[in-house]
């Protein structure tokens, strides 16, 4: 079985995003970029499935400007077999990304598609579900456990208030949550080997996808800072305020 994994190049999770002075967007100039943490977990899960013998090949796909090849190479260094970059000037909207990925899936015919549940830049949490809908495939989102049982994949999902386990027909789409696994580090020899693994570049035109505009970013602002409230003088006063004014207890 072939596994397709999608990866996104995003701001490093250790780096705080800063809004540009003109409020047009977030300033990413010379900012450390990295593999989206959820995508890294997706890559790890795919590699573990390959190491267990359940999968034979792991293909990684990324969409974006040329720089995203760095994240494909990182995934290859972690153990993926080959990479596909879909070259775009800017980061496409989720629906367009899903349409591009759908074409890759049609060509590659993977048995399982593993994706991060969301990217830590746009925080949309959409692309996996959209891709599943476009391909009419079942989905297991927010996975904390993935098991191949017979012809199906069993996904344990982190839902509000607990865990839910569902069984999906294959091919299926799984999106990862944080607790699914702890990704490995890439070793130096694997980083060097990754430079020689195959990586093909395609364009939306090659894939026959028309990139429509569905939303417009009007502005980006820094969140409003909290203002200091009042000082209370006693526990009685505090409890009274919380009950009657804030109404939170």
């Amino acid at each position: 079985m072939k596994i397709l994994v999608t990866v996104k190049r995003v701001i490093d999770y250790n780096v705080k995003a800063r809004v540009k002075a003109d409020n047009s967007d977030v300033d990413l100039a010379n900012t450390k970029m990295a593999l989206n943490p959820f995508c890294e977990i997706a890559v790890e899960e795919a590699i573990r499935l390959k190491e267990s013998g359940a999968a034979t090949e792991v293909v990684v796909v990324s969409i974006g400007p040329k720089a995203c090849q760095e994240q494909i190479r990182t995934s290859l260094a972690l153990g993926a077999d080959r990479g596909i970059q879909i070259e775009t000037d800017t980061m496409p909207e989720s629906l367009n990304a899903a349409k591009l990925l759908a074409k890759v899936v049609e060509a590659e015919q993977p048995g399982l598609i593993i994706m991060g549940k969301q990217a830590i830049d746009s925080d949309n949490n959409q692309t996996g579900q959209m891709l599943a809908a476009l391909l009419d495939m079942p989905q297991g989102t927010f996975a904390s456990k993935v098991e191949l049982i017979g012809e199906k994949v069993h996904v344990t999902r982190e839902v509000d208030g607990g865990l839910q386990t569902i069984a999906l027909n294959m091919p299926a789409i799984v999106t990862t949550d944080l607790r699914l696994n702890e990704p490995r580090y890439a070793s130096l020899p694997n980083i060097m080997k990754a430079k020689r693994k195959p990586l093909v570049v395609q364009t939306p035109v090659d894939l026959g996808v028309e990139m429509k505009t569905h939303t417009q970013l009007v502005k980006v602002e820094a969140p409003t800072e909290r203002q200091a409230g009042i000082k209370v003088n006693s526990i009685e006063e505090l409890i009274e305020k919380l009950q009657n004014e804030a109404k939170v207890i």
Binding site: I120, S122, D123, N124, N125, L217, V218, V220, E221, P223
Partner: peptide, 27 residues
């Protein structure tokens, strides 16, 4: 498109939502 996780309705077609883990608010 889907507009995820809105925190404010500016108008019937304009919304505010947090991005970058809440470090920025996009309209």
């Amino acid at each position: 498109a889907q507009i995820s996780d809105i925190i404010k309705v500016e108008s019937e077609n304009k919304f505010k939502r947090p991005i970058y883990a809440g470090n920025a608010i996009a309209t």
